[in-house]
């Protein structure tokens, strides 16, 4: 049975909202072919709806500046960090006595980071997030670092440029690839050391340009006789190690690894 004008009109809203069933839509379209009045009505209504949808999108476009969105994204990441830190802290308190030393160290970090909330917390985020992200990206997709990589040649260049000898393997982690990256405006050599599902990143850069701001130092644990800053707030742990004119940063998601021991093991300066 053929649809009449009234039945067709009853489905107008569903059609405008793209909610009509295929069968209904087909019947309405069949009616429109035969009925000039309804055809014009539907054409205009669909045209108006299209105009509205489009206008609603464009009329606000100006306010969506990309730098605004980027700073919002950073703010949100900061909030996620706080939640992560909270969660980690509550987990740590469930551990027994062998962890007490770690616990108090962690408490110090937490206290420091709470204090820093009121004093430029977000500059803090901006500081270590790029390193973590670089580490995560490498752990996720190591082939970018290993493809066509000439290890012997690379080790030679590093030794020559930085006077730095890299051990090719340490504690089961082996050096398989590297590439130069731009992180926070610094030229950084990013080396990766995978082991099973795990991965460690070592970043080598100049300590002259890669400076750790004081407010960030305050949130890290400092080893008294060496310039080692241990940063362990999120899902990733970073150790900043200043050696002569070099800044060596080690990143790992596996917090059972003693990164502080790990780095000097690689140093022959």
């Amino acid at each position: 049975m053929m649809m009449d004008c009234q039945q067709a009109f009853a489905l107008l809203q569903d059609i405008l909202d793209k909610e009509a069933s295929q069968i209904d839509e087909k019947e309405v379209r069949a009616h429109l072919k035969k009925c000039g009045h309804c055809f014009e009505r539907f054409r205009v209504e669909e045209s108006i709806q299209e105009f509205l949808n489009e206008k609603i999108k464009t009329s606000f476009a100006v306010e969506e500046k990309s730098d605004k969105l980027e700073s919002m994204r950073l703010d949100i990441m900061g909030h996620l960090d706080e939640i992560d830190a909270e969660c980690q802290e509550s987990k740590k308190t469930t551990f027994g006595s062998p962890f007490k030393i770690f616990l108090s160290a962690a408490a110090l970090v937490l206290l420091a980071s709470i204090w820093s909330l009121s004093t430029g917390f977000f500059s803090h985020q901006e500081y270590y997030i790029p390193l973590e992200q670089a580490h995560w990206a490498a752990a996720e997709n190591s082939s970018v670092y290993t493809q066509g990589f000439d290890k012997a040649e690379y080790l030679g260049i590093i030794e020559q440029n930085f006077n730095y000898n890299i051990n090719s393997s340490f504690d089961g982690y082996s050096f398989v690839g590297a590439k130069k990256e731009q992180i926070m405006g610094n030229d950084v050599e990013h080396l990766i050391f995978p082991k099973d599902d795990d991965c460690i990143s070592i970043f080598i850069t100049s300590a002259d340009t890669f400076v750790i701001p004081d407010n960030i130092k305050a949130t890290m644990i400092k080893n008294s006789n060496q310039e080692i800053y241990d940063h362990n707030c999120r899902g990733c742990r970073l150790i900043f190690h200043k050696v002569g004119s070099l800044m060596i940063i080690t990143a790992s998601t596996n917090k059972e690894i003693e990164l502080a021991d790990f780095i000097p093991g690689h140093l022959t300066i």
Binding site: L80, D84, C87, Q88, K91, F95, W136, R234, G235, C236, T253, N254, K255, E256
Partner: peptide, 16 residues
């Protein structure tokens, strides 16, 4: 501990 961290990290990455 590593397992818990791995879970936390996975959650964060998933969310991101």
């Amino acid at each position: 501990m590593a397992e818990q961290n791995a879970v936390a990290l996975k959650k964060r990455k998933e969310f991101e």
